[in-house]
């Protein structure tokens, strides 16, 4: 029985080693019921290993995974999970309907519900008119939709998606997320690993960042921004001619907090402002008073991109 106050997924001190390599080094986090959680991390951070542990494809070396309060090894518990793998794990020489049918049966959908579930999946994916066609001939986006549907035929309460939008165009991505939102509205909890940070920011309630086998950040986008790069906006300015000297701007607490921006010989500079309403006008006044005209200006709010790079650094992780 599912209790409302019990997390859909609870991962405690999860470790996985392959020989001398520690892929997971004590991962702890929870996925709440009905929550959409984005699971981020650079390449090799341990995301896929974690998904494989959850899907029962690899045995953790240490730690605990509970699904709705029950150990994942308990009989029938794994049925609450639906895995959508990163690769298109489909039978390309079967039709859409045949793929949906066989995966529904492998997931234990009773024979009496099979037809209704397949019909639902065809409508949900928008592939009713392509039901009898071989999946091998579909576009990447259509295959992704079938791939997603095959993982949720048994109405799982927790959906594990390992980079479900790899290699698809923006329209298809939008469609896939609309499909996921449908499931989420019906109560499914979603754990999504992705490299599309904008996707994670817009389509999730909470973000967990994993690096080198450990959780290094966990919270909403605002919480992560406040804890890392801070809420200040980045302002990029271009003036009508190169500066002869830096521009002096007074701080928001008064002229005693003067600071300089830009450098002699450059016509572009950047600065940070805490309050857009007051600090922008102060910056523009300072530029005008120094004898320059603003040619262009851009204000950037702190994003997950900045948070991610702040936490994981700029080094390649190939």
């Amino acid at each position: 029985m599912i209790q409302a106050d019990v997390p859909a997924l609870e991962i405690t001190e999860l470790r996985k080693t392959y020989g001398s390599l520690e892929a997971l080094r004590g991962v702890d986090f929870q996925l709440h019921q009905g929550e959409r959680l984005a699971f981020l991390g650079p390449n090799g951070a341990g995301k896929t290993t974690l998904i494989r542990c959850l899907a029962g494809r690899t045995r953790p070396t240490h730690g605990k995974i509970n699904v709705f309060g029950l150990p994942i090894e308990s009989p029938g518990v794994r049925n609450a999970l639906g895995l959508v793998p990163q690769d298109l794990a489909l039978y390309s020489d079967l039709t859409t309907r045949e793929n949906l049918t066989v995966f529904a049966r492998f997931h234990g959908v009773p024979r009496r519900n099979l037809k209704e579930r397949v019909q639902w999946a065809l409508q949900w994916t928008g592939l009713t008119d392509r039901a009898g066609e071989l999946v091998g001939g579909f576009s990447g986006g259509m295959k992704r939709r079938v791939n997603l549907a095959c993982g949720v035929m048994h109405r799982p309460q927790v959906i594990l998606l390992d980079e479900p939008t790899v290699g698809v165009d923006p329209q298809s991505r939008e469609r896939l997320f609309t499909m996921l939102d449908d499931l989420n509205r019906q109560g499914a909890s979603i754990l999504l690993t992705t490299h599309h940070l904008d996707e994670a920011q817009q389509r999730s309630d909470r973000i967990v960042i994993l690096d080198q086998g450990q959780v290094i950040a966990d919270g909403t986008i605002d919480q992560l921004v406040n804890r890392t790069v801070g809420p200040s906006r980045l302002v990029k300015v271009r003036v009508d001619r190169p500066l002869t000297a830096p521009v002096w701007i007074s701080g928001h607490t008064g002229p005693q907090h003067l600071r300089q921006v830009g450098a002699a010989g450059q016509d572009r500079f950047e600065t940070r402002i805490d309050d857009v309403t007051t600090d922008i006008s102060r910056l523009l006044d300072a530029i005008r008073n120094s004898g320059y005209l603003v040619s262009d200006m851009e204000v950037q709010a702190p994003s997950l991109h900045h948070v991610f790079l702040h936490l994981t650094g700029h080094e390649l992780r190939d």
Partner: peptide
């Protein structure tokens, strides 16, 4: 090779 086996074994099969 195309990871379908992985997926199959994550079901009840």
């Amino acid at each position: 090779e195309n990871t379908t086996l992985d997926r199959l074994l994550s079901t009840q099969l």
